[in-house]
Design a protein around this nucleic acid. Structure first.
Length: 810
RNA sequence: GCGGAUAUGGCGGAAUUGGCAGACGCGCUAGACUUAGGAUCUAGUGGGCGACCGUGGGGGUUCAAGUCCCUUUAUCCGCACCA
């Protein structure tokens, strides 16, 4: 390459910055296009290939939108709280604030070297007071609204480190550091009541331009099921409810199960069974939820030595404690119907529990368990009803006696936001002996995270050990009080950051509603599919909650969503330190330049699929840009020679140009970057071919080539600016309009049509554009080769697909 | 286990949504130019000598299937304290 790519990159990055080309101009808000990439965690490894893949091509999309006349807003920031920085501190003693700030600085620099149109004037760092102050403010608003509450919930506890562990730190049921067996321990923790919005979060999915699979994942995650709650009364007089979607099988109940954590288990267990039950509970505390729900795993459980009464028939059935029932789902209790549920069937066989059939199949299927709907039997008063009728009828009967109700249940659970860690936003409440749990008044925010803390894990979290932080006074009575030693889940910080960006420096409010209502929702959100169920759901919940408090007038934060794929290691496996297959983008940027790496990422992979890294293809991109540069230099040297005559070749070139404009426009819009680049390569081939002609029209060629550089510009921004300037264009090329397709140039005089006989290709014919069916038939019959094939044959059917093919059935 | 997805040449990947499978590129082969060069250009490149056969396997619908239906296999991703 002739040009010094490093110099060119610096030159244009400086120009863009000086001209503030990436800054959003509020006066043009009517033409706004808010494109957001998920912000990143400031890791020590600087930018990895995944960042490049997320941000590079999406920046090209943004530049494309800018050239299409939109006022684009593409902000960037850092999700800066989190576990890794704290782990790093424990290991090395470097304070999370220091390491995080250093990492952010490094990443900012490399992000700038990428040359993306990020509006740095709106940058956000979630670990800074001016941000987490408002995270705390939102917590208070949710609390006021009754959407934040406290309850007991289990945490992973390592008995030897005396510390709470993240799921990630539990490996095969053991502590990753000391390999002790991890147990569950109950703590009082904060929850957000996302379940209040379960129904709206579900129905709202219908109107979103999101990948179908993501919507389906959220739908399943929310997990709506309709059924009823039925109340069982224990012999002791205690009552508990079970949730079921199969009330039609209520007469088939031969036992009931409580989750081992259910309070009634402790209360009702008989003396004789006490030892067995306690052992079982201990065992359960070591099992993960995924294992507990596995249908392949052996169904374990113990009889607690107490019975309950089935409200529909007064029958006494045994109560079991079993870990395949989760205390956190439904009522934490289920009824056991071995005849019509596979898990119950296995359980009953093992514990010698009677199996009573109450539904028969329409087609007389008599193997048990029978899990389909059918006709109800052995159910006095309901026999002969279909399952669906019986479900309603049975619950309705129980409603009358006050022993049941129709109920919709969701698998979605409330969001646990307490983290027993240091590096997060402190929870803005204090606990007073007199006044109880008291929210910190708004004017006292932020509750600052102290710097001087001790990280070494010794049974207490760093904040709990910090007297200066913990000891405070009650805002109500002024008496002694203490703070919450926990911090907020980092997902809380990332659930509202898209609202902060458009008004990022506002010192008076989290965001200005007037501005936000104009700038939101986000027009295009781009990020990994791994966030389908959590971040994307939490953000939707926050938006709806803030709307209901009157701060926002829109219902959904992200109108349109795209997931980029994952770039795997060269071995086809996910990149990870332990595998040693991490590809560092820096050397490629150094050697080939940022445009080349970006372009390769756009061309070499299907954007939403990703795939294994392979650097063979990157040289092809260098070659491609080289060819463009050489042609540019050559064409630039031509002196104008105008010809008014339009040749066949001229027409072909114009066709190629306009076809490319149409395709690239469409492909960029749809994040189909690999095909967009393919069309650019095709057009370069067409330009090169035309250039080789003796009687070329230089003016036409120059004009087409200028448009070519405009088409290329979003995908290779520095390179295109440089060539554009060389061709005499006024910078910046990104202030020019994206070329518009001339439909007239796309009309061809004749089209090639494939001719099939009995669905096998026999010939290809040139057919004049717009020929009638009869004219096409005539042309087919005139063709020598086809004449031979069709001789003496009876034509049964003559199928014509305009401009594509003809199929003759004989 | 539950939930979600994917499978097309030697490789990365296309295919206007039921209409010419393999666009574009890598790699490979041959040639040109050359200071016998990991540069550039030009041509060829799914398989088979062939009629034909080809989109993970088997079956089906259709004039026509990579695309729709049934079935099966393999691989990958998420599962609520990683972000």
């Amino acid at each position: 390459m002739e040009m010094d790519i490093k110099k060119v990159e610096k030159k244009w990055q400086k120009y863009w910055e000086d001209e503030k080309l990436a800054e959003f101009k509020p006066k043009n808000v009517d033409k706004k296009y808010y494109c957001l990439e998920m912000f990143s965690y400031p890791s020590a490894a600087k930018l990895h290939l995944g960042h490049w893949y997320n941000y590079g091509p999406t920046d090209s999309f943004v530049r494309f939108k800018k050239m299409k006349g939109y006022e684009v807003f593409q902000p960037m920031g850092f999700d800066a709280f989190g576990l890794p920085a704290e782990n790093y501190a424990i290991k090395t003693g470097v304070h999370p604030k220091d390491s995080t700030e250093q990492n952010i600085e490094n990443m900012e620099q490399t992000l700038k070297e990428m040359g993306a149109f990020f509006d740095w004037s709106a940058e956000i760092k979630t670990c800074y007071e001016d941000y987490y102050k408002w995270t705390q403010w939102i917590f208070l608003k949710l609390y006021e609204k009754g959407l934040a509450y406290r309850k007991e919930a289990p945490v992973n506890w390592c008995p030897s480190c005396k510390t709470v562990l993240a799921n990630e730190q539990v490996v095969n049921g053991e502590c990753e550091r000391c390999h002790s067996t991890v147990v569950k321990k109950d703590l009082t923790q904060w929850f957000f009541k996302i379940t209040d919005y379960a129904e709206e979060l579900l129905t709202g999915l219908n109107d979103l331009d999101w990948p179908e699979k993501t919507k389906l994942m959220q739908k399943n995650w929310i997990g709506k099921s309709t059924g009823g709650e039925i109340e069982f009364t224990c012999e002791s007089g205690d009552k508990f409810k079970v949730f079921t979607t199969r009330a039609d099988t209520l007469f088939g109940v031969s036992y009931v199960v409580l989750a081992p954590e259910h309070p009634l288990v402790k209360k009702l267990t008989s003396k004789k069974q006490k030892k067995a039950v306690e052992e079982y509970i201990l065992q359960t505390s070591k099992t993960t939820e995924i294992d507990r729900l596995s249908t392949a795993r052996e169904k374990t459980g113990v009889y607690i030595g107490h019975n309950a009464i089935n409200p529909i028939n007064g029958k006494s059935v045994p109560i079991y404690a079993a870990d395949y029932v989760l205390y956190s789902y439904g009522t934490g209790a289920v009824m056991g119907v071995p005849s019509h549920d596979e898990r119950d069937f296995v359980f009953a066989k093992k514990h010698d529990i009677p199996i009573i059939r109450v539904v028969k199949g329409v087609n007389c299927d008599d193997t048990l368990p029978f899990t389909d709907d059918g006709i109800v039997m052995n159910s006095p008063g309901f026999d002969g009803l279909t399952s669906e009728e019986a479900r309603k009828a049975i619950i309705s009967k129980l409603v009358k006696t006050g022993q049941g109700e129709h109920k919709t249940n969701y698998r979605l659970r409330d969001w646990l936001v307490s983290r027993q860690r240091y590096w997060g936003a402190p929870i803005p409440v204090v606990y007073c002996d007199k006044c109880g749990c008291v929210p910190v008044p708004e004017e006292d925010l932020p509750v600052k995270l102290p710097y001087d803390v001790e990280f070494k894990p010794d049974g207490e979290s760093p904040l709990k050990k910090h007297q200066g932080f913990m000891e405070t006074t009650c805002p109500i009575c002024g008496g002694k009080a203490h703070r919450d030693p926990d911090t907020l889940d980092t997902f809380v910080c990332s659930s509202w950051y898209y609202l902060r960006y458009p008004d990022a420096k506002n010192p008076k409010e989290a965001f200005n509603s007037k501005i936000i209502n104009k700038m939101l929702p986000v027009d295009k959100y781009v990020g990994g599919a791994e966030h389908a169920c959590m971040h994307l759901l939490y953000a939707r919940f926050f938006t709806k909650a803030l709307r209901d408090m009157g701060y926002l007038d829109f219902d959904e934060p992200f109108k349109s969503l795209v997931h980029q794929g994952i770039i795997l290691g060269p071995d086809g496996l996910r990149m990870s330190k332990s595998r040693g297959n991490i590809i560092n983008p820096d050397p490629y940027v150094q050697q080939y330049g940022s445009d080349t790496l970006r372009l390769y990422l756009m061309f070499g992979f299907s954007y939403i699929e990703g795939g294994p890294w392979n650097d063979e293809g990157i040289k092809a991109i260098t070659k491609f840009l080289d060819r463009i540069e050489r042609l540019a230099i050559k064409i630039n040297g031509y002196t104008g020679k105008k010809s008014n005559q339009v040749t066949k070749e001229d027409k072909e070139l114009l066709y190629a140009l306009n076809y490319a404009i149409k395709c690239v426009d469409n492909d960029m819009e749809n994040f189909s970057f690999n095909t967009a680049v393919a069309r650019l390569m095709e057009l370069l081939n067409a330009l090169t071919k035309y250039d080789a002609l003796e009687n070329k029209n230089v003016t036409l060629l120059k004009n087409c080539f200028k448009q070519y550089i405009q088409l290329l510009a979003p995908c290779a921004p520095h390179f295109a600016e440089e060539i554009w300037e060389m061709l005499g264009g006024k910078p910046s090329i990104f202030t020019t309009d994206f070329p518009v397709c001339d439909q007239k140039a796309l009309v061809k005089d004749e089209v090639e049509v494939a001719v099939q006989i009995n669905s096998k290709i026999k010939a290809k014919l040139m057919i004049p554009n717009g020929a009638s069916q009869d004219e096409i038939k005539e042309l087919v019959y005139q063709d020598e080769k086809l004449k031979e094939e069709l001789k003496d044959k009876e034509i049964k059917k003559f199928i014509i697909i305009p401009n594509r093919l003809v199929n003759i059935i004989i």
